[in-house]
Design a protein around this nucleic acid. Structure first.
Lengths: 218, 218
DNA sequence: GTCTATAGTCGGATAGAC
DNA sequence: GTCTATCCGACTATAGAC
């Protein structure tokens, strides 16, 4: 893919925000162009129209999300030498989960989450691109690690479902942010709060992995 | 509150759907009126305008959600006689979690979820009403049960955060439905699939509760 | 590539008949 | 309570100047 021009980059970032808030129909090309310091007609020029911008925004999300998780994947790549053992997989899962919590609560994730959640509720081609670009890969990765921990007692299907429950524990801090803030009586989620969340999720994860490794019912 | 007229009821149901999909600004009063087999001006008459309908929809959601969880709450009410013991609380939590999964995957929940998730991303007075009406109560309920299981080692704050992680495991099957269907290679979530999800989440819950009751790190 | 102008559609609110 | 008519603003797309 060709490098993005500054105008295209600004438009894509604004587009993720506006489409996430208002949807494909609800978002206004005029407003997006204004926020990106350009003109409505440049959307037609660069992306072929509103729908083209929408799909380009989805691709941009996949690339951005991949960049978010890259550091964690690099870190765990160093853990494995030869045949992966449950203890390695457990460490890798803890790294991934802690990293994802840090990513999820960041403000920069808010716009992307709005877009993706909306697509989940009413999937279009944009969802295909995001799923194929990053979500499916991450899910498979976590599921694979869970299988290792379980000594392959979990089959691929079960491992994927289990991976979703792990991810769900993290996602709620983004998707249910307003309820979390209210329930926890927080006004923001800063470094201290992140550590607190990470401790709780890590503790849950440890409990679940213990059971998986020892071979509880599944 | 007065009983709802048929027109009001239809308008509220359509409103939850449309506002959930398109947001307060994006939804069209004309389209909502059409889908509810009435006229745009009846929105003004019954609810004072678009914003009035929006807030009324939020109240309607709180009532509907309360109705959804009522059966589980009634069921667990019979469990407690005298001072609640950890074993009672564990049974109650399993009942609540299994019930919530059943509720979350139902199609009727989709529209409500869209509305609530949107409010979470950008809370307005509507969120206050839903949180005060039902969400906060359920969160407190689950947190209270977790505290009992932990022999009160969890304080109120920690128990609420832990409750959110439990709920997150369930919410993902609604909020991330498209990814779940794709990852699990399902085309729908029917009775068999619900049982499968319930088994996985129950297994996670059992692991987490074991650790909480025995007193792992928190 | 950037910008203006415009055609055509749809939006919410409201006044007022019945 | 139900329905029509109308006002005015905002929207997308597009043609075309520069």
């Amino acid at each position: 893919m060709p490098a993005l021009s500054p105008t295209e980059r600004r438009l894509l970032e604004v587009a993720i925000d506006h489409f996430g808030r208002f949807g494909l129909d609800g978002a206004s090309t005029r407003a997006m162009a204004r926020d990106a310091d350009t003109l409505m007609s440049s959307i037609t020029y660069h992306f072929g129209g509103k729908t083209g911008l929408y799909l380009a925004a989805a691709d941009h999300i996949a690339v951005t999300m991949a960049g978010f998780v890259a550091p964690a994947l690099e870190q765990i790549a160093t853990l494995f030498e030869g045949i992966p053992k449950p203890a390695d997989a457990r460490r890798a899962l803890h790294i991934i989960v802690a990293h994802m919590i840090g990513v999820m609560v960041k403000d920069e994730t808010a716009a992307i989450a709005r877009f993706v959640v909306r697509e989940q509720a009413d999937p279009t081609e944009a969802f295909d691109r995001i799923y194929a670009g990053i979500m499916g890969l991450m899910l498979a990765r976590v599921a694979g690690l869970l299988r290792i921990v379980s000594h392959n007692r979990l089959d691929e299907h079960a491992a994927k479902l289990r991976a979703m429950t792990i991810v769900g524990q993290i996602l709620i801090f983004r998707v249910g942010r307003a309820a979390v803030l209210r329930g926890a009586e927080w006004t923001e989620i800063g470094e201290d709060e992140i550590k607190e969340l990470q401790a709780h999720v890590a503790d849950n994860l440890e409990a679940i992995l213990d059971r998986l490794e020892r071979g509880g019912s599944a």
